[in-house]
Simulated scan of single mutants.
Amino acid sequence: MSQPQPAERVDFFEWAWKHKLMMLPIVLALMLSVCGGVVGMIYISALSGVRENPLHREAVTIASENEQVRKALGEPMAGGFIESGTINIDEEAQFGSADIEIPISGPLGRGRLIVEGKLAEGNWSVEKLTASLENGQVIPLVDEKIKADKAAAEKAEAEKAETNNVDAENADADETANSDPVAQESEQLDSE
């Protein structure tokens, strides 16, 4: 009985060289897939950096805290990537401005945030913020007037607190003067 001969081992590279035309589409598809994956990863990482922008985060937070927006869109609410607008930044001076639109969505609907912001000394602040919902409703969230009213209220509270501190200091001084018997005697003598 003769033993079966082992199958001839075919080297892959040898086979591929012989069948070049069949290998060409496979190699091209592989190269295209790798390049597409790299470009996709770069794109996704760049856009995730935009979501971490303090102006984006603050605008979405303000919108999600607003009762009207929560009622119209439902919870949880999420902000998407910046759709359009401009962001101008002077990196050296740490100043800039932004005028952007951010899509927002929740289980009950969608909308977009129209944001105007300023960068001063490295810190972003929302100057104007409006929510435009798909049902046609427009909700001003932050406005120059609202910010001015809030600043005036904070200033009034600070002045009131300062006045209360001065009154408390005067009351303490009066108590100190009234508790000193020598000072009371000298006041009586002065009045006579």
Rank of each mutant, 00 (worst) to 15 (best):
Glu127Phe: 11
Ala156Ser: 05
Trp15Gln: 13
Pro107Gly: 04
Ile87Ala: 02
Glu14Cys: 06
Glu144Lys: 12
Leu55Thr: 01
Glu134Trp: 01
Ala131Thr: 09
Asp90Met: 11
Thr61Ile: 07
Gly37Tyr: 02
Ala173Ile: 08
Glu144Ile: 12
Glu169Pro: 10
Val60Ile: 14
Leu24Ala: 08
Pro6Met: 05
Gly122Pro: 09
Ala7Met: 13
Ala7Cys: 09
Gln137Thr: 15
Gly96Lys: 05
Ile100Asn: 01
Glu116His: 14
Leu189Val: 07
Leu189His: 03
Glu58Pro: 04
Arg9Phe: 15
Lys160Trp: 09
Gly109Thr: 06
Gly79Val: 01
Arg51Gly: 14
Met22Thr: 02
Ala171Thr: 06
Lys118His: 05
Leu108Ala: 13
Ile114Arg: 00
Gly80Phe: 14
Ala148Met: 07
Ser84Arg: 02
Ile114His: 14
Asn66Gln: 13
Ser2Tyr: 03
Val138Tyr: 04
Ala153Ser: 11
Leu55Ala: 09
Met22Phe: 09
Ala72Glu: 04
Lys155Arg: 12
Thr61Asp: 08
Met22Gln: 10
Leu108Val: 10
Ser186Leu: 12
Trp15Phe: 08
Gln94Leu: 13
Asp90Ile: 13
Gly49Gln: 07
Val27Gly: 11
Trp124Ala: 00
Met41Thr: 14
Ala16Met: 15
Gly79Trp: 14
Lys20Arg: 15
Ile89Thr: 05
Val166Thr: 11
Val115Trp: 00
Ile114Asp: 13
Arg57Ala: 03
Ser105Tyr: 07
Ala131Glu: 01
Ala120Trp: 12
Asn170Thr: 01
Glu75Thr: 13
Ala120Cys: 04
Gln137His: 10
Leu32Tyr: 11
Gln188Ser: 12
Val182Ser: 00
Val50Ile: 10
Met23Ala: 14
Arg57Phe: 01
Gln5Pro: 03
Ala98Ser: 14
Val27Met: 10
Asp174Pro: 07
Gly136Val: 06
Val27Ser: 08
Val39Glu: 07
Ile26Leu: 14
Asn135Ala: 02
Ala148Gln: 11
Glu159Gly: 02
Gly85His: 12
Ile44Phe: 12
Glu92Arg: 03
Ser186Trp: 06
Ala151Arg: 02
Val10Glu: 09
